[in-house]
Design a protein around this nucleic acid. Structure first.
Length: 309
DNA sequence: AATGGTCAAGTCAGC
DNA sequence: GCTGACTTGACCATT
Protein backbone atom coordinates (compact mmCIF):
# COMPACT_ATOMS: atom_id res chain seq x y z
CA UNK A 1 0.00 0.00 0.00
CA UNK A 2 1.43 3.33 -1.10
CA UNK A 3 0.25 6.67 0.21
CA UNK A 4 0.35 9.86 -1.83
CA UNK A 5 -0.90 13.40 -2.27
CA UNK A 6 -1.60 15.57 -5.30
CA UNK A 7 0.59 18.05 -7.11
CA UNK A 8 1.78 20.44 -4.40
CA UNK A 9 4.18 20.03 -1.50
CA UNK A 10 3.58 22.73 1.08
CA UNK A 11 6.80 22.10 2.99
CA UNK A 12 8.81 23.15 -0.04
CA UNK A 13 8.80 26.69 -1.32
CA UNK A 14 8.71 25.76 -4.99
CA UNK A 15 5.75 24.86 -7.22
CA UNK A 16 5.88 22.53 -10.20
CA UNK A 17 2.81 24.21 -11.69
CA UNK A 18 4.17 27.65 -12.45
CA UNK A 19 2.49 29.23 -15.40
CA UNK A 20 1.89 32.55 -17.11
CA UNK A 21 -0.77 34.36 -19.07
CA UNK A 22 -1.62 33.07 -22.50
CA UNK A 23 -1.05 36.49 -24.04
CA UNK A 24 2.51 36.56 -22.72
CA UNK A 25 3.30 33.22 -24.32
CA UNK A 26 6.64 32.83 -26.04
CA UNK A 27 8.57 29.64 -26.68
CA UNK A 28 11.37 31.03 -24.61
CA UNK A 29 9.13 31.72 -21.67
CA UNK A 30 7.64 28.26 -21.91
CA UNK A 31 11.02 26.57 -21.85
CA UNK A 32 12.09 28.70 -18.90
CA UNK A 33 8.94 27.84 -16.94
CA UNK A 34 9.20 24.12 -17.66
CA UNK A 35 12.84 24.17 -16.55
CA UNK A 36 11.71 25.56 -13.18
CA UNK A 37 8.76 23.22 -12.93
CA UNK A 38 10.90 20.15 -13.57
CA UNK A 39 13.47 21.30 -11.05
CA UNK A 40 10.72 21.62 -8.47
CA UNK A 41 9.23 18.26 -9.40
CA UNK A 42 12.59 16.72 -8.70
CA UNK A 43 12.68 18.41 -5.26
CA UNK A 44 9.21 17.09 -4.47
CA UNK A 45 10.05 13.55 -5.54
CA UNK A 46 13.20 13.59 -3.41
CA UNK A 47 11.23 14.87 -0.44
CA UNK A 48 8.69 12.11 -0.97
CA UNK A 49 11.33 9.41 -1.27
CA UNK A 50 13.02 10.64 1.90
CA UNK A 51 9.73 10.49 3.79
CA UNK A 52 8.42 7.18 2.51
CA UNK A 53 5.70 8.79 0.40
CA UNK A 54 5.68 6.59 -2.69
CA UNK A 55 2.60 7.81 -4.56
CA UNK A 56 2.30 11.20 -6.22
CA UNK A 57 0.04 13.00 -8.66
CA UNK A 58 1.91 15.18 -11.13
CA UNK A 59 0.24 18.49 -11.93
CA UNK A 60 -1.36 18.99 -15.33
CA UNK A 61 0.31 22.42 -15.39
CA UNK A 62 3.82 20.96 -15.58
CA UNK A 63 4.02 22.15 -19.20
CA UNK A 64 1.63 25.11 -19.49
CA UNK A 65 -0.37 25.35 -22.73
CA UNK A 66 1.18 22.09 -23.92
CA UNK A 67 -1.96 21.12 -25.80
CA UNK A 68 -2.85 24.65 -26.91
CA UNK A 69 -2.21 25.64 -30.55
CA UNK A 70 -0.07 28.53 -29.32
CA UNK A 71 2.54 26.08 -28.11
CA UNK A 72 5.08 25.59 -30.86
CA UNK A 73 8.11 24.84 -28.70
CA UNK A 74 9.57 21.36 -28.94
CA UNK A 75 9.53 20.86 -25.18
CA UNK A 76 9.55 17.09 -25.55
CA UNK A 77 12.93 17.17 -27.21
CA UNK A 78 14.30 19.99 -25.09
CA UNK A 79 13.59 18.14 -21.83
CA UNK A 80 13.88 14.53 -22.95
CA UNK A 81 16.87 13.80 -20.74
CA UNK A 82 15.45 15.62 -17.73
CA UNK A 83 12.27 13.59 -17.94
CA UNK A 84 14.25 10.38 -18.39
CA UNK A 85 16.37 11.10 -15.32
CA UNK A 86 13.29 11.83 -13.21
CA UNK A 87 11.71 8.64 -14.50
CA UNK A 88 14.75 6.64 -13.50
CA UNK A 89 14.54 8.08 -10.00
CA UNK A 90 10.84 7.21 -9.80
CA UNK A 91 11.44 3.62 -10.90
CA UNK A 92 14.45 3.10 -8.64
CA UNK A 93 12.45 4.20 -5.62
CA UNK A 94 9.45 2.15 -6.81
CA UNK A 95 7.17 5.15 -6.76
CA UNK A 96 3.69 5.27 -8.31
CA UNK A 97 2.58 8.21 -10.44
CA UNK A 98 -0.81 9.46 -11.56
CA UNK A 99 -2.19 12.51 -13.34
CA UNK A 100 -5.67 14.05 -13.33
CA UNK A 101 -6.72 16.35 -16.19
CA UNK A 102 -9.10 19.03 -14.95
CA UNK A 103 -12.73 19.72 -15.52
CA UNK A 104 -12.43 20.99 -19.07
CA UNK A 105 -11.44 17.59 -20.36
CA UNK A 106 -14.57 15.80 -21.52
CA UNK A 107 -14.31 12.74 -23.69
CA UNK A 108 -18.09 12.57 -24.04
CA UNK A 109 -18.58 16.24 -24.91
CA UNK A 110 -21.35 17.01 -27.35
CA UNK A 111 -19.35 19.81 -28.88
CA UNK A 112 -16.83 18.17 -31.25
CA UNK A 113 -14.33 20.96 -30.59
CA UNK A 114 -14.40 20.33 -26.86
CA UNK A 115 -13.90 16.65 -27.61
CA UNK A 116 -10.97 17.43 -29.91
CA UNK A 117 -9.27 19.66 -27.35
CA UNK A 118 -9.81 16.99 -24.72
CA UNK A 119 -8.04 14.36 -26.80
CA UNK A 120 -5.08 16.68 -27.31
CA UNK A 121 -4.89 17.31 -23.59
CA UNK A 122 -5.04 13.59 -22.85
CA UNK A 123 -2.27 13.02 -25.39
CA UNK A 124 -0.16 15.59 -23.54
CA UNK A 125 -0.70 13.78 -20.23
CA UNK A 126 0.28 10.46 -21.81
CA UNK A 127 3.32 12.11 -23.32
CA UNK A 128 4.57 13.28 -19.93
CA UNK A 129 4.27 9.77 -18.50
CA UNK A 130 5.88 8.30 -21.61
CA UNK A 131 8.81 10.72 -21.39
CA UNK A 132 9.29 9.50 -17.82
CA UNK A 133 9.49 5.98 -19.28
CA UNK A 134 6.86 4.76 -16.85
CA UNK A 135 4.95 1.55 -17.51
CA UNK A 136 1.17 1.41 -17.75
CA UNK A 137 0.74 1.37 -13.97
CA UNK A 138 1.15 5.17 -14.23
CA UNK A 139 -2.44 6.29 -14.81
CA UNK A 140 -4.44 9.24 -16.06
CA UNK A 141 -7.72 9.56 -14.19
CA UNK A 142 -10.78 11.11 -15.77
CA UNK A 143 -14.45 11.46 -14.99
CA UNK A 144 -17.00 10.09 -17.45
CA UNK A 145 -18.05 13.66 -18.22
CA UNK A 146 -21.26 15.58 -18.78
CA UNK A 147 -24.84 14.30 -18.80
CA UNK A 148 -26.26 16.69 -21.40
CA UNK A 149 -29.81 15.76 -20.46
CA UNK A 150 -29.44 12.14 -21.55
CA UNK A 151 -27.36 9.89 -19.33
CA UNK A 152 -27.59 6.75 -21.44
CA UNK A 153 -26.61 8.53 -24.63
CA UNK A 154 -23.77 10.32 -22.84
CA UNK A 155 -22.41 7.08 -21.39
CA UNK A 156 -22.69 5.47 -24.82
CA UNK A 157 -20.80 8.40 -26.34
CA UNK A 158 -18.06 8.01 -23.74
CA UNK A 159 -17.69 4.32 -24.57
CA UNK A 160 -17.62 4.89 -28.30
CA UNK A 161 -15.00 7.65 -28.00
CA UNK A 162 -12.91 5.70 -25.49
CA UNK A 163 -12.67 2.69 -27.79
CA UNK A 164 -11.27 4.87 -30.59
CA UNK A 165 -8.49 6.45 -28.54
CA UNK A 166 -4.90 5.89 -29.53
CA UNK A 167 -3.09 3.21 -27.58
CA UNK A 168 -0.80 5.68 -25.77
CA UNK A 169 -3.85 7.17 -24.03
CA UNK A 170 -5.95 4.03 -23.78
CA UNK A 171 -3.37 2.08 -21.81
CA UNK A 172 -3.23 4.73 -19.11
CA UNK A 173 -6.78 5.97 -18.82
CA UNK A 174 -8.88 5.09 -15.77
CA UNK A 175 -12.30 6.49 -14.87
CA UNK A 176 -13.40 7.94 -11.56
CA UNK A 177 -16.81 8.32 -9.94
CA UNK A 178 -17.78 11.96 -9.41
CA UNK A 179 -19.88 13.74 -6.79
CA UNK A 180 -22.96 14.54 -8.88
CA UNK A 181 -23.14 12.95 -12.28
CA UNK A 182 -21.74 9.45 -12.52
CA UNK A 183 -21.51 7.00 -9.64
CA UNK A 184 -19.09 4.14 -9.09
CA UNK A 185 -21.87 1.84 -10.41
CA UNK A 186 -21.98 3.88 -13.62
CA UNK A 187 -18.21 3.50 -13.89
CA UNK A 188 -18.49 -0.28 -13.43
CA UNK A 189 -21.03 -0.35 -16.22
CA UNK A 190 -18.59 1.46 -18.52
CA UNK A 191 -15.90 -0.98 -17.44
CA UNK A 192 -17.92 -4.00 -18.53
CA UNK A 193 -18.16 -2.58 -22.02
CA UNK A 194 -14.62 -1.26 -22.36
CA UNK A 195 -12.32 -2.90 -19.82
CA UNK A 196 -11.29 0.50 -18.47
CA UNK A 197 -10.18 0.29 -14.81
CA UNK A 198 -12.21 2.21 -12.25
CA UNK A 199 -10.62 4.48 -9.66
CA UNK A 200 -12.76 4.85 -6.57
CA UNK A 201 -13.19 8.25 -4.89
CA UNK A 202 -14.43 7.81 -1.33
CA UNK A 203 -15.84 11.26 -0.75
CA UNK A 204 -17.57 11.42 -4.13
CA UNK A 205 -19.13 8.08 -3.33
CA UNK A 206 -20.35 9.32 0.02
CA UNK A 207 -21.69 12.60 -1.38
CA UNK A 208 -23.30 11.41 -4.61
CA UNK A 209 -26.94 11.02 -3.73
CA UNK A 210 -27.40 8.17 -6.21
CA UNK A 211 -24.77 5.98 -4.55
CA UNK A 212 -25.76 4.56 -1.20
CA UNK A 213 -23.99 1.20 -1.47
CA UNK A 214 -21.62 0.38 1.38
CA UNK A 215 -17.96 0.56 0.45
CA UNK A 216 -17.33 -3.04 1.49
CA UNK A 217 -20.00 -4.17 -0.93
CA UNK A 218 -18.96 -2.25 -4.04
CA UNK A 219 -15.21 -2.12 -3.58
CA UNK A 220 -14.43 -5.75 -4.53
CA UNK A 221 -16.08 -5.11 -7.92
CA UNK A 222 -13.97 -2.00 -8.40
CA UNK A 223 -10.74 -3.75 -7.45
CA UNK A 224 -11.53 -6.42 -10.06
CA UNK A 225 -11.43 -3.83 -12.87
CA UNK A 226 -7.64 -3.55 -12.53
CA UNK A 227 -5.54 -6.30 -14.10
CA UNK A 228 -1.91 -7.04 -13.29
CA UNK A 229 -0.55 -4.73 -15.99
CA UNK A 230 -2.59 -1.83 -14.61
CA UNK A 231 -1.01 -2.36 -11.21
CA UNK A 232 -2.52 -2.17 -7.76
CA UNK A 233 -5.84 -0.29 -7.79
CA UNK A 234 -5.62 3.42 -7.02
CA UNK A 235 -8.13 5.08 -4.73
CA UNK A 236 -8.79 8.75 -4.00
CA UNK A 237 -9.44 9.19 -0.31
CA UNK A 238 -10.55 12.36 1.40
CA UNK A 239 -12.15 13.21 4.70
CA UNK A 240 -15.25 15.36 4.78
CA UNK A 241 -14.69 18.87 6.13
CA UNK A 242 -16.78 18.78 9.33
CA UNK A 243 -17.74 22.45 8.86
CA UNK A 244 -17.98 22.68 5.10
CA UNK A 245 -20.83 21.68 2.82
CA UNK A 246 -21.02 18.02 1.86
CA UNK A 247 -18.19 17.18 -0.51
CA UNK A 248 -15.79 19.77 0.78
CA UNK A 249 -12.36 18.35 1.48
CA UNK A 250 -11.13 18.47 5.04
CA UNK A 251 -8.24 20.69 6.04
CA UNK A 252 -6.40 17.74 7.54
CA UNK A 253 -6.85 14.00 7.66
CA UNK A 254 -9.32 12.37 10.04
CA UNK A 255 -7.20 9.38 11.03
CA UNK A 256 -9.98 7.31 12.53
CA UNK A 257 -12.07 7.75 9.37
CA UNK A 258 -9.02 6.89 7.27
CA UNK A 259 -8.35 3.68 9.19
CA UNK A 260 -12.01 2.79 8.94
CA UNK A 261 -11.66 3.06 5.16
CA UNK A 262 -8.51 0.92 4.99
CA UNK A 263 -10.45 -1.62 7.06
CA UNK A 264 -13.34 -1.50 4.59
CA UNK A 265 -11.20 -2.24 1.54
CA UNK A 266 -9.18 -4.89 3.37
CA UNK A 267 -7.93 -7.44 2.25
CA UNK A 268 -7.40 -5.71 -1.11
CA UNK A 269 -4.13 -3.89 -1.62
CA UNK A 270 -4.62 -0.27 -2.71
CA UNK A 271 -2.52 2.79 -3.45
CA UNK A 272 -4.22 5.71 -1.73
CA UNK A 273 -4.17 9.30 -2.97
CA UNK A 274 -5.09 11.68 -0.15
CA UNK A 275 -7.08 14.62 -1.48
CA UNK A 276 -6.70 16.73 1.60
CA UNK A 277 -5.77 20.37 1.89
CA UNK A 278 -2.61 20.00 3.93
CA UNK A 279 -1.14 17.61 1.36
CA UNK A 280 2.07 15.90 2.47
CA UNK A 281 1.35 16.53 6.17
CA UNK A 282 -1.68 14.28 6.00
CA UNK A 283 0.32 11.72 4.03
CA UNK A 284 2.88 11.62 6.82
CA UNK A 285 0.11 11.23 9.42
CA UNK A 286 -1.48 8.43 7.40
CA UNK A 287 1.84 6.59 7.09
CA UNK A 288 2.43 6.89 10.82
CA UNK A 289 -1.08 5.66 11.56
CA UNK A 290 -0.69 2.64 9.27
CA UNK A 291 2.62 1.84 10.93
CA UNK A 292 0.99 2.03 14.36
CA UNK A 293 -1.91 -0.03 13.09
CA UNK A 294 0.43 -2.72 11.83
CA UNK A 295 2.40 -2.86 15.06
CA UNK A 296 -0.73 -3.29 17.09
CA UNK A 297 -1.90 -6.05 14.78
CA UNK A 298 1.46 -7.79 14.89
CA UNK A 299 1.43 -7.76 18.67
CA UNK A 300 -1.94 -9.41 18.54
CA UNK A 301 -3.60 -6.49 20.21
CA UNK A 302 -7.31 -6.25 19.52
CA UNK A 303 -8.19 -4.09 16.54
CA UNK A 304 -10.76 -1.93 18.25
CA UNK A 305 -8.37 1.01 18.25
CA UNK A 306 -7.00 0.46 14.78
CA UNK A 307 -10.44 0.19 13.26
CA UNK A 308 -10.84 3.75 14.27
CA UNK A 309 -13.68 3.74 16.72
C1' DA B 1 6.46 46.60 -2.71
C1' DA B 2 1.69 45.85 -2.28
C1' DT B 3 -2.74 45.13 -4.19
C1' DG B 4 -6.60 43.14 -6.48
C1' DG B 5 -8.77 41.81 -10.86
C1' DT B 6 -8.25 38.13 -13.63
C1' DC B 7 -6.80 33.83 -15.71
C1' DA B 8 -7.35 28.47 -21.99
C1' DA B 9 -10.56 25.38 -21.52
C1' DG B 10 -16.95 23.09 -19.39
C1' DT B 11 -20.99 21.63 -16.95
C1' DC B 12 -24.66 22.22 -14.03
C1' DA B 13 -27.45 23.98 -10.17
C1' DG B 14 -29.54 27.81 -8.46
C1' DC B 15 -31.45 32.21 -8.95
C1' DG C 1 -29.75 34.21 -19.06
C1' DC C 2 -26.27 34.88 -15.63
C1' DT C 3 -23.30 33.59 -11.65
C1' DG C 4 -20.75 30.63 -8.84
C1' DA C 5 -18.79 26.07 -7.56
C1' DC C 6 -15.53 22.88 -8.79
C1' DT C 7 -10.00 24.02 -6.75
C1' DT C 8 -6.69 27.60 -5.48
C1' DG C 9 -2.98 29.78 -6.74
C1' DA C 10 -0.50 33.17 -8.83
C1' DC C 11 0.18 36.19 -12.87
C1' DC C 12 0.62 40.79 -13.94
C1' DA C 13 -1.14 45.57 -14.53
C1' DT C 14 -1.53 49.21 -11.64
C1' DT C 15 -0.48 52.06 -7.92
Amino acid sequence: MKIGYPCINQSLSCRSSRTFRLRSYTDERLLLTVTENLRCLEDILRYNADHGILFFRITSDLVPFASHPVCTADWQDAFREDFAALGTFIREREMRISMHPDQFILLNAKDPEVFGRSVHELAYHAEVLDLLNLDMTAKIQLHIGGVYGDRDASIARFIERYLCLEEAILRRLVIENDDRRYTARDCLRVHTETGVPVIFDTLHHRVNSSSDEPVEKIYPHIAATWNSRDGIPMVDYSSQDPDGRPGKHAATIDISDFLRFTGEVCPFDVDIMLEIKDKEQSALLALAALEGDRRLTQRGVTQTISKGK
